[in-house]
């Protein structure tokens, strides 16, 4: 058996290694057909499958067994088969279901973007913008939790959490001791330490970077500023920590380094996890060797002025149902 399998996503065929997930195959193709992923994180084992935003339709199972899959599947946890055909943005059913997931993710979300540190680089904000409904049909009181500090470096706004479990996997896999976790169950679940213990560990700060929303934020982020007013610059230093390569992004406002984060790739994932010393304690330009301004992903709201790269697939322009399903995206592409 060959190690490469063929998979077709929204009409685009690609050859990927056996065992690749649909999501990662789509990422190899790139562009608009990549399903949004709120909980999957390629660097965290066991992640994915929970948020359901990455759902797609498998219209043909494989060459051997061409039957379609009966339900929509989570692309981040479904591996491709040879000859599989997948529909993402060319399936009105997928787009409708995804809008449903987005609506549901937002019913208990405080929608406090105007005061949230994550605004501008929040995956949920992007998701709501691209896939959501205009207004909510949820008329009940939203679930609320108190904001708490877990240690002197990290703040937790549980109200904003979407329970993606990424921070839990990070603590399990990147740090040597996990002191926070998921308590309670159902929609009472919350991220917590249960008792007042500081999350204090050489790599604990990485939970901030993996959090797709503004639930875990950097308390040392100085002068609280909107990210789109800051200027990201890639930099590095000779970090003495054996597991940290000292490659970071510095976020500048004028001359000041407001915060330090890991570098993120085009899918919003960190390239390498960084240690707490680099993240929290090195906030002077003199600590770093500067490289170049950071490339900003075009899907981010930070880059919302740069949407000219958005090109609807040709098939969408030809098909009326698809035009309807993709209406907002189309309008936006015409506006630009």
């Amino acid at each position: 058996m060959s190690d490469l399998v063929k998979v077709t996503i929204d009409g685009i065929t690609v050859e990927v290694e056996n065992g690749t997930t649909i999501l990662n195959a789509a990422r190899q193709i790139g562009g608009d057909i990549v399903p949004p992923a709120m909980c999957y994180y390629s660097k965290l084992k066991g992640s994915g499958g929970k948020c359901r935003t990455c759902i797609v339709k498998v219209s043909k199972g494989s060459e051997k067994d061409p039957r379609p899959m009966p339900k929509l599947v989570a692309s981040c946890r479904t591996t491709v088969m040879d000859g599989m055909e997948v529909l993402n943005i060319t399936s009105p059913e997928v787009l409708e279901a995804r809008a449903g997931v987005v609506e549901i993710l937002l019913i208990n979300h405080p929608l406090d973007c105007p005061v949230c540190d994550q605004a501008g680089e929040c995956d949920l904000q992007n998701l709501g913008y691209e896939h959501g409904l205009q207004k909510t049909r949820y008329e009940f009181e939203r679930r609320t939790f108190d904001r708490i500090d877990i240690g002197d470096k990290i703040q937790l706004h549980m109200n904003r959490c979407i329970l993606c479990y990424r921070c839990v996997f990070t603590a399990d896999q990147i740090t040597n001791k996990r002191v926070h976790g998921i308590l309670n169950r159902g929609d009472h679940s919350e991220i917590s330490t249960y008792i007042q213990t500081a999350v204090d560990n050489d790599f604990s700060g990485n939970v901030i970077d993996v959090c797709p929303v503004g639930a875990l934020t950097d308390r040392t982020f100085r002068f609280k500023n909107r990210v789109w007013f800051t200027k990201p610059v890639d930099a590095h230093r000779n970090c003495s920590h054996e597991k940290c390569n000292g490659k970071v992004t510095l976020w500048y406002k004028g001359e000041d380094v407001l915060r330090v984060t890991a570098r993120k790739d085009q899918f919003g994932e960190v390239e390498d996890f960084i240690c707490n010393e680099c993240r929290f304690d090195k906030k002077k330009t003199a600590d770093w060797t500067l490289e170049h301004p950071t490339h900003i992903s075009e899907t981010s709201v930070i880059a919302s002025n740069h949407y000219e790269t958005f090109k609807p697939l040709p098939v969408i322009k030809e098909n009326l149902t698809l035009q309807e399903a993709n209406q907002r995206e189309l309008e936006r592409s015409f506006k630009i």
């Binding site: 997931v101 208990n108 998921i182 169950r185 159902g186 679940s189």
Partner: peptide, 14 residues
């Protein structure tokens, strides 16, 4: 609901 996946966690309450 165990609360793992969003449609069930939030939808059942709704």
């Amino acid at each position: 609901s165990c609360g793992q996946c969003s449609p069930c966690r939030e939808g059942t309450g709704w």
